[in-house]
Amino acid sequence: MPHALQAEFATVLRDPALPLPTSVISHTSRTPQKRFAVYRNNVMVGLIGALESRFPATRRIVGDEFFAAAARVFASTQPPRSPLMMTYGDEFPDFLASFEPAAEIAYLADVAGLEAARTRAYHAADAAPLEPAAFSQIDADRLADLCIVLHPSVEIIRSQFPIVVIWAMNAGDMELGPVADWRGDDALVARPALDVEVRRLPPGAAAFLQSLSADAPLGTAAESAAASDPAFDLAVNLAALFSAGLAISATHRP
């Protein structure tokens, strides 16, 4: 398809109010409008369906009807840029954050952000986590200079809402109920092996992991974590790093 035609076709596809592209003809019907409408609807239904399967907890929070309507607005303004439907909706959390009808549910965008991260973690590259034994070989005097590479699937979502519990309740992992501890969560999403895991991070861990993923050596990362939260406990964080399989390599800087 020539480029201009393609652009026109794509525009009309997203807006039912626009007239049919002149190039769209039918050999067997004098009214291709109806057929085009079917096609247009299928495209929209497909995109909404992709968002529904990527954001099940978000959908459950607002209800099917609201979700479908919100997804329709998103899909008509932000069509996919890639044919890989599993990546569609990376911008959906941001969209929800500024989506006025959802403003009442302050935590919605962050829960959607967690769900988006889960899909990305699922499709992230595989990498074998480092065995804890590897760390016992390291020269203790040079620990501060140790550079730890995190697993490619690792993502951190910081929220001022208890999104891990809210997500778990709406993803069917936990029963719905009162949230006793209404505090912000730093959520960790990772897929060290086959399953995507979601955890709540201990104090300072978000700063610690973000620092490590920005290539800071262990000493610097620990210091910035302690500065960000006095309750930061390095031993607990290292133990979590090993047991959750978050580190894939640890080397000294040359």
């Binding site: 609807n41 299928n42 959908r59 549910i105 719905l176 009162p178």
Partner: peptide, 29 residues
């Protein structure tokens, strides 16, 4: 999903859709 012909009529969502109040499990939490 993309192959469904359900509701193939022209969809015309005007502003009225946003009178919906989110409903679902939010009020259960």
């Amino acid at each position: 999903a993309g192959t469904s012909c359900a509701g193939s009529s022209k969809v015309d969502y005007d502003g009225s859709i946003w009178k919906y109040v989110p409903k679902g499990t939010c009020e259960t939490i």
